[in-house]
Design a protein around this nucleic acid. Structure first.
Lengths: 117, 117
DNA sequence: TTGACATATGCCGATATCGACATATGATGG
DNA sequence: CCATCATATGTCGATATCGGCATATGTCAA
């Protein structure tokens, strides 16, 4: 009995969580301090329920925290989960930084162009 | 007339392209050199058509190149597109590296724990 | 040309996803 | 308790996504 898995769940995976533009924008906004949902929704130009859902995803992967503050619920950034992504991409640094690989990429650009003539 | 946009197209966006585990594995495999599709498929334990489709996505966002080599079609890494991701996540470095923010996160962990009692 | 091998594409089924909307839950103050 | 404000959740419609499978395209070699 094989249950289908159409795509990796967006929750439970930081890579998927930040694949969404609006969620990335939320994280950027939270860099300057904690905010309630409705304020974030306003700044993103989206409705409150949508913002709540994005925040839920971000919370489930641990990129965001919330604390109650009176009637409000303040969300704050927890950037620690972004570190693995930073390090994973950093593993490819030589493919854009190293002069040999830059030259290599250049040569392949030329080959590509020649092939497409 | 508003056309629906259920989710950002995986093509045309590097963040979405690397949101998929198998595509990330392909990129890692290509770090050690160019490979044909069928070899990648074998190493990933998936069928060739699946690997071809993932490679198509990676090619469309510019993370991968291909060149014809006889009967084969060799795919190679072009890591340059990962740089923006590395830099974007790097913008959050202080949220995991800075001692103040580490302390801050620690305190919030405590508050969280207390709140959930 | 024909056959063999390598790769790409098309279709299907199951499911995830996102925005919009309505509504439920929750907390506060009177 | 009740009204109010803030937030969360549920449902729906449209679409994207992924693996599996069959099949088309492409490339070589004899």
């Amino acid at each position: 009995m094989m249950v289908f898995m159409a795509r990796a769940a967006t929750t439970s995976d930081v890579f998927n969580a930040i694949a969404e533009r609006q969620r990335r924008e939320i994280l950027v906004l939270l860099q300057s301090g904690e905010r309630p949902v409705s304020e974030l929704a306003g700044e993103l130009g989206m409705a409150q329920p949508g913002a709540s859902k994005h925040l839920r995803v971000l919370r489930e992967v641990g990129l965001v925290r919330d604390r109650k503050a009176g009637k409000l619920r303040l969300y704050s950034l927890d950037g620690r989960g972004l570190r693995p992504v930073h390090e994973w991409t950093g593993g490819f640094e030589r493919f854009w930084n190293d002069s040999f690989d830059r030259l290599n990429a250049y040569v392949q650009d030329l080959e590509q162009a020649r092939q497409e003539e």
